[in-house]
Amino acid sequence: MRIATLFALFLLAPFAFATTCVECHKNVTPNIVSDWQLSKHAQNSIDCSTCHGSDHTSKDDVNEVKLPTPDTCKMCHSQQVEQFSKGKHAFAWAAMKAMPTFHWQPMVTTEGMKGCGGCHKIGLKTEEEIKQLKAQGAGFGVASCDACHTRHTFSTVEARQPQACQTCHMGFDHPQWEMYSSSKHGVRYLLKQNGTLPEKTAAPTCQTCHMQEGNHEVRTAWG
């Protein structure tokens, strides 16, 4: 009887923990809670502690919360993370830091993942870099995956839309969105989205060419 009781408590513990998180964060970060409740994570009982750990239990120990990295996502999505690690997105952070012009910018425009870092944060980082970013106050932006599957819905439907790429691939220095959205590919897809063209209309997205068959090893047409 005692063993059965302990086993039941073991099974119920994560749900109790999730309830505690939700009740508090409904007041502190209500949009995070509502997004999570809409997610596949919530539907499959993936609670807060799965990704953030269970050390943070009150406002007095906020620093104990674990911020997810690709390794966190890899626990469940190993194939996708392995693929991602080989693609161009994974090298975005290193590529930014390798650019001399990045280091010439005033610190006020680059600290805390501002400026270039706002998009290049999708790249993989070392543990030391993550520690440095956290020390600078940039606690977010180390997960990589949430650049396309934005938290806390983590929606594959969202990540498959060309607008998921628009946030970063735009502007005078890399106007891929402007080129795509004004091309026949982009125009036809946007017309599909607003219902002008039928749902079954052929209209490639960014992902059609750069993530063929859902492969997260994002590549350009030339490699």
Rank of each mutant, 00 (worst) to 15 (best):
W177P: 10
R188A: 14
T126M: 01
R160F: 02
M170L: 08
V142H: 14
K131I: 10
Y180G: 09
A138K: 00
M179V: 15
A138C: 08
K134F: 07
Y189H: 11
F140K: 07
K125I: 07
F172L: 08
G139S: 01
Q132C: 05
P198W: 06
S182P: 10
L197T: 08
E129D: 13
G195R: 02
C209A: 08
C168Y: 13
Q163M: 02
E128Q: 14
Q166H: 14
E158Y: 14
A138D: 03
M170T: 15
H174R: 03
M179Q: 15
N194P: 01
Q193D: 09
S155H: 11
G123E: 01
K125W: 07
A203P: 06
R151M: 12
R188G: 00
Y180E: 10
T205L: 11
T126V: 06
T126A: 04
E129N: 07
G141F: 06
S144I: 04
G186H: 04
E178N: 07
C165W: 12
E158M: 04
Q207T: 15
Y189N: 03
T201V: 03
A159V: 03
R160S: 14
E127P: 09
H152R: 01
I122E: 02
P204E: 07
R188K: 10
Q136A: 13
G186D: 06
P175S: 08
L191C: 03
Q136R: 04
C168G: 15
F154Q: 03
A135I: 01
G139K: 01
C145Q: 12
A147P: 01
C165R: 00
L197Q: 04
T201E: 11
Q132G: 08
I122H: 03
A135P: 08
V142Q: 14
T167R: 14
T126E: 07
Y180S: 09
C206Q: 03
L133I: 00
H169R: 05
V142W: 01
I130L: 08
S182I: 03
T205D: 12
M179D: 15
C206F: 12
F154G: 01
T150I: 13
E199F: 01
H174S: 10
L133Q: 11
S183Q: 09
H169L: 07
A143Y: 05
K134H: 15
S144T: 13
G139Y: 11
T153G: 03
P162S: 02
D173P: 00
S182N: 14
S144A: 15
E158A: 12
T205P: 11
K184R: 03
D146W: 04
T205Q: 09
E199G: 00
T205K: 10
T167C: 03
A164N: 02
R188D: 15
T205C: 08
Q161S: 12
Y180P: 07
C209N: 09
E128G: 02
K200S: 13
N194H: 08
Q166Y: 11
S181L: 05
